[in-house]
Amino acid sequence: MSNMQPSKGSGKEQPGLRYPTNGKTIYHRPLNRTKTAELSGASFAYLFAEMVSYASKRIESIQDLEKRLNVQGHPIGLKLLDLLLYREPARSQTRPLNIIALLHFIKLNVWQHLFGAAADGLEKSSDPAKPDEYMIIDNEPLVNRYVSVPRDMSQLNCAAYVAGIIEGVCDGAAFPARVTAHSVGRQEDGGASGAPAEMWPGRTVFLVKFAPEVMEREGYLGKG
């Protein structure tokens, strides 16, 4: 990518960046070229543990801590949206245009890229008073694999970091939203879809609440 050439030198070539003949740039594959292109889980776990303890310095409340983790994830989501769309084949490179397409993109593409598997569920809030709320469900979030939350911080879910990434993706796609992470593994009824709670103690629901203007736009789109 570094050999940018002035276009007047060669008449035939297109102005601007030159592309490799196969059309693949460095953005099309991970920098890590090993076979699986995976990163070490242990080093991520240590890094994430440091991020959490950094974020928990001088906090006023649990919400404060979750907010900080959320803010750390947000820029990743913004950039990830661009990167993943760029890697799509040229025909489907447009950004998601409605809520369902966006959530599917998050559930499949974003999750596959970050965690190596699609999310375990995608649901719409069953409460008719809250049509703007959607839920993405992960039975065992990767970031929480080694985290045990102490009893006095029981509302905390460190997957707030992942919620921040989702929020970044939504914001980047022009669907402003608030995303929060909630643990449902310990509830008696086993969470939203009735899966056994015993099996997934770390089950987490990412609650995506879209801004009113998004819902308004979605309403117009539905009519047209």
């Binding site: 242990a42 991020m51 959490v52 303890s53 080694y146 045990s148 939350v149």
Partner: peptide, 23 residues
């Protein structure tokens, strides 16, 4: 080393109270 040392809420040399480790 997995479920205690990688837990952000564990303080070194202190009693281990990690639910995932117990489990």
């Amino acid at each position: 080393s997995d479920y205690v040392m990688k837990n952000p809420f564990y303080q070194l040399e202190m009693p281990v109270r990690c639910e995932t480790f117990d489990r």
